[in-house]
Write a protein that binds this DNA or RNA. Structure first.
Length: 261
DNA sequence: ATGGTAGAAGGTCTA
């Protein structure tokens, strides 16, 4: 099963790019972030025509996450348990019913950016990460295969950014941010790309500003976290820079992983 | 220090 994640930075602005990518990459499951629209205006028809079921947790103007799946989606859940007061649409989870031993629980995650620091936005990010860690622990206890994919807004290590010094005081790279990310990993999750790759300076996001893309001045912030039962099935994980090079590109590019049956 | 870009808006806010 091929599972992809992509922060599209507006599904409406990005629809031609997303459809072209779905046709070419043919993921079984696509986890989208920053759809930036409500459920009613999500372009579900064009996506369903490609054979995908859609589970959407939208929001006007900001945030918004979705799961696209060629297999039926069950147990759709939006928002993190214990975080019911949160009015930002950043989490959607579902069981992908692929039949046999191919089933998997997936979540599409848009973790808060957290800048500027210090301040309310950073406090919100850290609190949100605590709620995500709680959910990740609950899911581990099910002993199901679980794939938590999305825009984590976390640069895990120096080698995951072009210029560590430039990011030293940023919410995506502060020691406290990276420590909380490791706390989730230490529950028993595997970061799919890094466990299969040793390369440095491979990125999933390049800012629109300052010619970051042509200069390859990027950061790696889009990740898959796999439970042991999913990690046992992991055979491949790749970052596809192609969509970032297209006209009207998102500032993120898709990351995908392949799980064996 | 500032502003550089993009998107949803049709104000600024978010990133």
């Amino acid at each position: 099963m091929k599972i992809a994640t992509w922060n599209v930075n507006s599904i409406k602005a990005r629809l031609p790019n997303v459809l072209e990518w779905l046709d070419a990459a043919q993921p079984d499951v696509a986890l989208l972030q920053e759809i930036k629209t409500v459920d009613e205006t999500f372009p579900a028809m064009e996506i369903e025509e490609r054979g995908y079921n859609c589970a959407i947790h939208g929001q006007k103007s900001y945030n918004g996450v979705a799961i696209l799946s060629k297999h039926p989606l069950e147990d759709v859940m939006t928002g993190l348990p214990g975080n019911e007061d949160d009015d930002q649409a950043r989490y959607i989870e579902a069981w992908v019913d692929a039949g046999g031993h191919d089933g998997v629980r997936v979540a599409s995650i848009y973790l808060p950016n957290g800048n500027p620091t210090p301040g309310d936005k950073y406090d919100y990010k850290l609190g949100w990460m605590d709620h995500l860690a709680d959910r990740a622990a609950t899911l581990l206890a099910t002993e199901e295969p679980v794939v938590l994919g999305g825009d984590y807004n976390v640069i895990p290590a120096d080698e995951d950014c072009h210029d560590p010094a430039a990011w030293a005081n940023d919410a995506l790279f502060l020691p406290q941010t990276r420590a909380k990310f490791r706390t989730i990993l230490n529950l028993g999750y595997t970061e799919a790309w890094r466990t299969l790759h040793t390369e440095k300076n491979v990125y999933s996001f390049w800012d629109y500003q300052g010619g970051a893309w042509p200069k390859d001045n990027g950061i790696r912030i889009d990740h898959f976290l796999l439970s042991p039962q999913a990690a046992d099935r992991l055979v491949k994980c790749e970052i596809d820079p192609g969509p970032r090079s297209k006209p009207k590109a998102s500032d993120h590019t898709p990351v995908w992983c392949e799980l064996a049956s």
